[in-house]
């Protein structure tokens, strides 16, 4: 966790003379959705921290697992206590790079590549996202899927049919210029 904080501090501190390249949001949104024949489960997190550098394309996203709000409190309890073990692994992070940021105009589709860490397990992922720059705001939105099994999240057999094996994750990060 110290290591991850160091990366954030690094991205914030480095190149102080080029501060206009860095954009930040502390109110990004990430939601996930699990569809199964038994029930649909949705959770929403409005406290996502994301820092990006529009020059280099570096992006770092960090979320608190306990900030995911579920419709039913029992689902939220199971999610935190049994599945992602939030007390042991309080954060999920993504550290990556927007690959084709230089070729873009004010809007476009970008490919983001990096390491997604959930439940203490890191995997390389590639995500396609929409990017839009307007004034001092750079918005990145997209949807991608993760396999529950890739992150060593164990679902007890009793509720195996209630929870999808593939979870759809949506994100909307409206970065503002950092100053």
């Amino acid at each position: 966790m110290k290591y991850i904080y160091a990366i954030f501090t690094f991205i914030l501190m480095v190149n102080t003379s080029f501060s206009q390249d860095r954009y930040i949001t502390k109110q990004g949104t990430i939601s996930f959705f699990s569809h199964s024949p038994v029930e649909d489960i949705k959770a929403l997190n409005n406290q996502v921290l994301s820092i990006m550098d529009v020059e280099s394309g570096d992006i770092a996203v960090s979320v608190l697992m306990k900030s995911f709000m579920f419709e039913k409190s029992l689902m939220q309890e199971h999610f935190n206590e049994n599945y992602v073990e939030s007390d042991k692994f309080p954060k999920a992070t993504f550290i990556g790079k927007i690959l084709n940021i230089k070729d873009l105009g004010n809007t476009g589709i970008v490919l983001i590549e990096g390491d997604l860490t959930i439940h203490g397990i890191s995997n390389k992922i590639e995500v396609e996202a929409d990017i839009e720059a307007e004034g001092n705001i750079v918005s990145i939105t997209g949807v991608f899927n993760v396999l529950v099994a890739d992150y060593d999240i164990k679902i007890p057999s009793v509720v195996r049919n209630n929870i999808a094996k593939t979870i759809e994750i949506s994100f909307s990060l409206n970065h503002k210029e950092y100053n």
């Binding site: 954030f8 502390k26 406290q47 921290l49 960090s62 979320v63 608190l64 306990k66 900030s67 709000m69 309080p90 954060k91």
Partner: peptide, 13 residues
């Protein structure tokens, strides 16, 4: 409710 610390301490609801 305290959900943790990113750059800041977060309280929700």
């Amino acid at each position: 409710i305290c959900t943790g610390y990113l750059m800041d301490v977060i309280l929700v609801r």
